[in-house]
Amino acid sequence: MRVFPVYAPKLIVKHARIFLTGVIWVKDLGRLEFEKGRFLLPRKSLPKVKQAILELNELIEAQN
Rank of each mutant, 00 (worst) to 15 (best):
P5I: 10
L46A: 14
L41V: 09
M1G: 15
H15P: 01
F39R: 00
P5D: 15
R38D: 03
A16Q: 02
L40C: 06
K10L: 12
E35D: 13
V26H: 01
K48D: 07
G30H: 02
I18V: 12
L59E: 06
L29W: 04
M1R: 06
I18Q: 15
F19L: 07
L56T: 00
R43C: 06
L20P: 04
I18T: 14
I18K: 15
I12N: 00
G22W: 01
V23W: 10
V6T: 06
L20E: 14
E58W: 09
G22I: 01
I12F: 03
F39E: 01
F4R: 00
R2S: 07
L11C: 09
L59T: 05
V23P: 02
T21V: 06
E33Y: 15
M1A: 13
I53N: 00
R31C: 08
E55D: 07
L40T: 09
P47V: 12
V3L: 03
R17G: 13
E58Y: 09
K14P: 04
V13P: 00
E58H: 12
A62G: 09
S45W: 09
L54E: 06
F39S: 01
R38K: 12
F39V: 02
E61K: 11
I24K: 01
M1E: 15
F34T: 01
N64Q: 12
R2P: 15
K48H: 08
W25I: 07
T21N: 14
V13C: 05
E61L: 10
V3G: 05
T21E: 13
G30F: 04
G22M: 03
V13W: 02
Y7R: 01
N57F: 01
E55G: 06
R43A: 08
Y7I: 02
K27A: 14
I24M: 05
V6Y: 13
L41I: 12
V49E: 04
H15S: 03
I60M: 14
A62R: 11
P47E: 08
I24A: 05
G22H: 02
V49I: 11
L29A: 02
K50G: 06
L32D: 01
L41P: 08
N57D: 03
Q63W: 13
R31D: 04
F4W: 03
K50M: 08
D28S: 14
E33A: 13
K36R: 09
K14I: 11
K50V: 08
K44I: 06
K10V: 12
L11V: 08
R17C: 05
G37D: 03
Q51K: 15
E61G: 10
L46D: 08
E33L: 10
K27D: 15
E55F: 09
E61R: 12
Q63C: 06
L56W: 02
L54M: 11
G30V: 01
K50W: 06
T21L: 07
G22T: 02
A16R: 00
I53F: 03
E58F: 11
K14G: 12
V23N: 08
D28E: 09
E35N: 10
N64T: 09
I18C: 06
S45M: 13
V13Q: 04
L59C: 04
K48N: 07
L41K: 10
K48R: 12
D28H: 14
D28A: 12
G30T: 01
R38W: 13
E55N: 06
W25G: 03
K10P: 09
I24E: 00
P42W: 04
A16D: 00
L29P: 00
M1K: 13
V13H: 02
L56C: 03
T21C: 07
Y7C: 03
K50C: 05
L32N: 01
F4Q: 01
P5F: 14
P42K: 06
A8Q: 09
L11H: 08
F19N: 15
E61I: 11
F4S: 00
K10N: 13
A8E: 10
I12E: 00
E55W: 06
V49N: 03
F34N: 00
R2D: 14
K50P: 03
K14L: 08
P5N: 13
L54G: 08
K27H: 15
L20R: 09
Y7V: 02
A8R: 08
I12W: 00
Y7P: 01
F34M: 06
L56N: 02
V6L: 07
H15T: 04
F4L: 02
V23T: 12
M1P: 15
E58P: 01
F39W: 02
A52V: 09
F4G: 00
K14R: 13
L46Y: 12
N57W: 02
L40D: 04
G30W: 02
H15R: 03
L46K: 15
Q51F: 07
L11P: 09
V13I: 09
F39T: 02
K48G: 07
V49D: 01
V49L: 13
L46C: 08
P5L: 14
L29V: 12
L40Q: 08
H15Y: 06
G37A: 10
Q63G: 11
F39M: 03
I53K: 00
A62K: 10
M1I: 15
H15V: 05
V23K: 14
R43Y: 07
Y7W: 14
F19Y: 13
V3I: 04
V26T: 03
L29M: 10
P42R: 06
L20G: 13
E61M: 09
P9L: 03
L20T: 12
A62H: 14
T21A: 11
L59K: 05
G22A: 03
L54P: 01
D28M: 08
E35Y: 10
E55K: 09
V26A: 03
